[in-house]
């Protein structure tokens, strides 16, 4: 479904991604872990098409199409969804209005009929239950005055409504207490399916006890330096990121 080859990217002139290779198949959940500044969020933003990130080399093939050539909205319509680490507050735009416009843009692209107000409301009510979201939040402006937990739940709720093929969760666990984390993880697990792939980006192993990944990759200094199954996450939790650094120094000549 997704193939990333030798991806290099710059932000404000500094090279952050320095040759990422990753293949994700339909139905799989991949966790990407790494210390601060390793390039986790940059990878998420590059995949979703953020213009301030400059791809300098490599390619990304999504469903046999060149993802990097698509505008952000085209990627979304093709089925890529990014759950933001820091969802934006947008005063004056109601969540309902926004989400209906988004859903219809996606449906139009897929050759489906636009949903009317009644069907949309029914869909929304069903999906809100997944993350135990209060219906009152729907009529409020997007994320305005939402707590950290409500914002993250809103991201997963939007994902449920838009039904993407590939979901990228960028540090969805950051800033959540254990109860909110459990709710968000339950929502995410309910959305796992054979038709959907997920990339779960996180700093901590904690989230991966709830969303159990098929694969774990460690991102370090802009490259994936280690891959394994869920046991790798536990090992990392136990030994810390310094352990990766030590291993790297052993295998690479000094000064590389």
């Amino acid at each position: 479904m997704l193939e990333i080859k030798n991806l290099h990217a710059k932000v404000a002139g500094a090279e952050i991604l320095r040759g990422i290779d990753l293949a994700v198949n339909t139905g799989e959940v991949h966790a990407i872990m790494g210390p601060n500044g390793s390039g986790k969020s940059t990878l998420a933003h590059v995949l979703s098409g953020r213009e301030s990130y400059e791809v300098t080399a490599g390619e990304v093939i999504f469903e046999k199409k060149n993802l990097l050539e698509m505008r952000p909205e085209e990627r979304a319509r093709e089925g890529v969804f990014l759950a933001f680490q820091y969802p934006v507050e947008i005063p004056g735009v109601s969540t309902t209005y926004f989400l209906k416009a988004a859903l219809n843009a996606v449906r139009k692209h897929r050759g489906l009929e636009e949903v009317d107000a009644m069907d949309f409301l029914a869909l929304v009510k069903e999906k809100m239950k997944l993350v135990e979201m209060d219906q009152g939040l729907l009529n409020r402006p997007i994320n305005e005055g939402f707590s950290g937990g409500e914002k993250k739940r809103n991201e997963i709720f939007q994902m449920a409504v838009l039904d993407p093929k590939l979901a990228i969760l960028d540090e969805t666990d950051s800033g959540l207490d254990i109860d909110a984390l459990r709710i968000v993880a339950t929502g995410v697990n309910a959305l796992r399916s054979k038709e959907r792939a997920m990339i779960v980006i996180t700093h901590y192993q904690r989230l991966l006890s709830y969303i159990v990944p098929d694969y774990v990759h460690v991102l370090f200094d802009g490259r994936i330096v280690k891959s394994g199954d869920k046991r790798l996450a536990l090992e990392l939790e136990e030994k810390g990121y310094a352990w990766i650094e030590e291993q790297l120094q052993k295998t690479q000549p000094v000064g590389f």
Partner: peptide
């Protein structure tokens, strides 16, 4: 950031700008 957020959900760039202007 707001424009990007809306676009990342499938809303076109012009529509996103218009929506925010209206807001």
């Amino acid at each position: 950031d707001s424009i990007f957020y809306l676009r990342s959900r499938g809303i076109g760039v012009e529509a996103a700008r218009n929506l925010l202007t209206y807001a």
